[in-house]
């Protein structure tokens, strides 16, 4: 686990609780969430059709796609409600000195 894999996303106060921000790195898009018990990260694009989840609704531990209401668990990435059926990829997150980092493989 080399240090290089951790990418800085921004400061911890850049996300409101029960909300998310979009984070683009190289040619990939991620969503970084602040839930009541900490920060989480997933792929930024819905697995159903290529739609950005940044405009989706965060409720409890779930993100709901703004296009067709596919729902994913933010912590596990599990697809919970159709039309989404493929899971969303998740990424480890750490906080260091009020900065959020995600580990991209």
């Amino acid at each position: 686990m080399s240090e290089e894999n951790w990418i800085e996303v921004g400061s911890t106060d850049s996300i409101e609780e029960e909300d998310l921000i979009r984070f683009d790195h190289q040619d990939k898009t991620f969503c970084v969430y602040k839930l009541t018990d900490g920060f989480y990260a997933t792929d930024g694009i819905c697995t159903h059709e290529a739609v950005h989840l940044e405009d989706g609704l965060v409720m409890d531990d779930e993100i709901e796609c703004p296009m067709h209401q596919g729902i994913f668990n933010i912590k596990s990435g599990e697809a919970l409600s159709p039309p989404a059926c493929e899971d969303l990829k998740t990424y480890p997150v750490k906080v260091d000195n009020d900065k959020i980092f995600i580990k991209i493989d």
């Binding site: 950005h52 609704l57 796609c65």
Partner: peptide, 11 residues
């Protein structure tokens, strides 16, 4: 445009 009304409609 895709993605712009879903959240508000859901709420």
């Amino acid at each position: 445009v895709i993605g712009k009304v879903g959240r508000d409609i859901r709420i």
